[in-house]
Design a protein around this nucleic acid. Structure first.
Lengths: 208, 208, 208, 208
DNA sequence: AATGAATGAGTTTTCATTCAT
DNA sequence: AATGAATGAAAACTCATTCAT
C-alpha cells in the first residue's frame, strides 16, 4: 500500500485537523462539481468549507492540497469497500459481488470520481504519482481476485492477461462516472452493472 | 453528423487560415502534452506555433478555441479512419479490423486523445456539446457495425446491449491513451489490441 | 433623490472602505487631471491611492467604478452646499447667493468638475443614467428656487421657461470649469460670478 | 485666423486626399457617435470609411488625426456660416440672426459638436491648442458683433463684459448639443433658440 | 495606391498566498 | 486558532501601427 502523503498543517490538534479537513473535502467536492478545480477559487473553497481564507490555509499548504485531499478520500472509500473481498475464496461469485460493490460505489460517488479523473493532471508530480499508485492498488485488488479464481480453477486466464482484464473492470466502472452522459438515457445503474458483468465474463459471443 | 462550429478569424485568406491553424494545432498539442491546457499560456501557444501573440489572435477568438481546434482535428481523423468500415458487410472480421484501426489510431495520436479527454470540460458549453456529439457519433459507428453483425447472423446481441458494447469498445480504446501508464510496462499496442479484442469477443470464460 | 449605486467591495469593514475610497478618489482626481481617465492605468490609480493594484481591486470592481466614485463625490458636495437654499424664502437675494455658492464650489473643485463633464460618457449605461439623474437634480434645485421667486412675486417667469433658465445657471457654472482657458486670462472668479449673475438677471439690455 | 495644422499623407494626388478624407470624416462621425472616439478602433474607422486599414494610414498618421479632421471640419462649417454676419452693421437684429444661425447649425450638427466637446482632451497638445484657437475665433466673431452693436448704440455693454457675453452665447449653443438630454423632452430647437435669445437679451427681470 | 497580415507593448483583472491582528 | 486585508505576479486579450506584396 502506497505511503500516505502528509498534507502539512500549522495546527497541532489532530482531532481539529480531521474535522476541518472533513469540512474542506465536503465543500470542495460540491464546488468542484459545479465549476471544476481550476475555476474554483480558494476563497470559494474556504467559504464552502464554512470558514475564512486564512483558516483554510492553516490546514493546507496549497490549493492543490485540497484536490489531493479529495482524491485521497475517494481511494480510502474504495479500498475500504473492496478489501473484504481480498480474503474471500476465489470464485466467480466473489468476483461478481466485488464488481457489483465497486460499480455501485462509483455510482454513489460519481461526482467525486469524475472530479478525480478530470483533475488528476492538475496535481503536482509527486502527488500525482501517489494517486496513480493508489489507482494501481485498485487494479491489483481485482487482479488478485482474478488470480485466485484461476487458482481455484474457476477461470482459465493466462497470467499475462490478468492485468488487462483487471484494468478493464476498473476502467468500465469509471466510465459510468465520467461518461455518464453516454449511458444515463438508456441504462439504470443495475442494468449497467449486469450488462457489463455479463459482457465481461462471457464476451460478445457468449452474451445474449 | 454534427454541424461544425466555426472558429472566427479576422484573416480572409482561407489557405492562410488553414496553414496557420495547422501550426497552432501542432504547437498546442506539443505544449498541452507537456503542461496541460490550463498551464499553457497563450503567449506560449503563439510561440510554439511560431508567431506572435497578436498573430495568434488573428486566427482564434479565445484560448478555448485552440482547445477546440485540437479536439476537432482528432475527431476528423477518427471519422476519416473509421468511415470505410461503415459500408462493409457485417462480419466479425470487419469488426475486428475496425477495432484494430481505431485502437491503432488512438495509439498514434495518444497525446492528442489524452489532451481531449482531460480538457474537454474546459470548453465552453456549446463547444463541449459539439464534442460530445462527435463522441456519440464514434460510438454510433461501432453500434452500427455491431447491428450489422447481428443482422448477418454473426452475432446474437440484444438491441438493448448494443450501446453498452459499443461504448465499451470506445472506452477501452481511450483507456490506452489516458491510462497508458497502467499498460505500457506490460503490453505493446499489438498485444493490447489483441487481448482487448479477444476479451471483448469471447469474455473471461471463453478467453484463454 | 436618485438611489445610490453600490460599488461592490470584497472588504467588510465599512470604515476601512470609506477610508480607502477616500484615498482612491484623491489619487484618481489628481491623476485624471493630468492625463484623463482613459490614459490613466489602473496600476497608476492604485499607486496614486497609495496601495497595490490588488488592494485597489478589493475596493472597486472595475476601472469605471473609480470614475463613478469621483463623480458621486462631486454631486454629494454640490447637493450638500445647495440644499440649505431650498428652504429659504424665494427672493432674488437667495437666488444670488445660491448661484454664488454653486459657482464658487465649481471654482474650488474645477478639476473634479472638468473630469466629470469630460468623462461621463465613459461610464457604463446604468451609472451614466444615475449621473444624469443627479445632474437633473441639480437643475431642479435651481428650478425650485426660481419657482419660489415667481411665487413670491420677485420674478415673473412663465413656467415653460423655468427649466431653460435653471439649465442656463447650471451650464454657465460648469463652463467656468471646462472652459476655464477661455476665461482665466480676463476674469477672476468673483468677476465671473458677478458678471454672469447680472447678465442672467438683467440681460444684455438691462446690463450695463 | 489660426494657422491650419497639416495632417501628413503619403499620397500625392490632392484631389484624392480630399476625397478620402471626406470618407474618413463621414465614417468616423457615425462611428464616434455610436461608441465614442476611444472605443472606436482604427480598423472600424477604416471600414466605416469604406477602405482597408492600410489605406487609412495612407491618409493619416495617427488615430488622433482622425479626431482632428472631424473637429476641423466642424469649425470650418461654423466659420463659413457666421462670417457673413461679420460684415453686417451692428444691430440687435443682426445679432439675433447670427445667434439663430449658429444655434441652428449646432442643432443640425449636434452629433459632430458633441463628439468635439467630449473628445477634445484626447487630442495631442498641439492639436488641442489649435482647436482652442478656433473655438476662440468663434467667440471672437460674436464678440465683434456685440462690439459693433455697442458702436452703433444699440447696446450699452462695457468692454470688460463683452467676452463673458460672447462666451455665454457660444456655450449655451453648445449646451443644446452636449446636454440635449436635458432639453429635448421640454423644448423644440425653435423654442430653445427663442427662449435663450430673449433670456440673453433681456435677462430674467425683463423676460416674461 | 491599396491591401491586410503581422507585430508586441500595454491594459485590465484575477487569485493564490501571506501575515499582522 | 481564526480572521481577512494586502499583495503582486501572471494571464488573456486588444489594437495602433507597420510593411511586404
Amino acid at each position: 500500500m502506497p505511503k500516505d502523503i502528509e498534507v502539512h498543517s500549522s495546527v497541532k490538534d489532530e482531532t481539529l485537523i480531521a474535522m476541518r479537513r472533513e469540512q474542506i473535502i465536503k465543500g470542495a467536492v460540491k464546488l468542484f462539481k459545479e465549476k471544476g478545480f481550476h475555476k474554483a477559487t480558494t476563497r470559494e473553497i474556504a467559504k464552502a468549507a464554512g470558514f475564512s481564507i486564512g483558516t483554510l490555509y492553516e490546514y493546507i499548504r496549497t490549493k492543490e492540497d485540497v484536490l489531493y485531499l479529495v482524491c485521497d478520500r475517494i481511494f480510502n472509500e474504495v479500498t475500504l469497500k473492496l478489501s473484504p473481498y481480498q480474503n474471500e475464496e476465489g470464485t466467480l461469485d466473489t468476483l461478481r459481488r466485488a464488481i457489483y460493490e465497486y460499480y455501485y460505489l462509483i455510482h454513489r460517488m460519481h461526482i467525486e470520481f469524475t472530479i478525480m479523473y478530470q483533475e488528476t493532471k492538475s496535481l503536482p508530480k509527486d502527488t500525482r504519482a501517489y494517486i496513480l499508485d493508489r489507482e494501481y492498488e485498485m487494479v491489483s485488488m481485482f487482479a488478485e481476485l482474478l488470480r485466485s479464481c484461476v487458482a481455484s480453477g474457476e477461470l482459465a486466464l493466462k497470467e499475462q492477461y490478468i492485468l488487462i482484464a483487471a484494468n478493464q473492470i476498473v476502467v468500465q466502472g469509471q466510465a459510468w462516472a465520467f461518461r455518464n452522459w453516454a449511458y444515463k438515457k438508456d441504462y439504470k445503474i443495475e442494468q449497467f452493472i449486469e450488462a457489463q458483468t455479463e459482457l465481461f465474463l462471457y464476451g460478445l459471443k457468449g452474451f445474449s
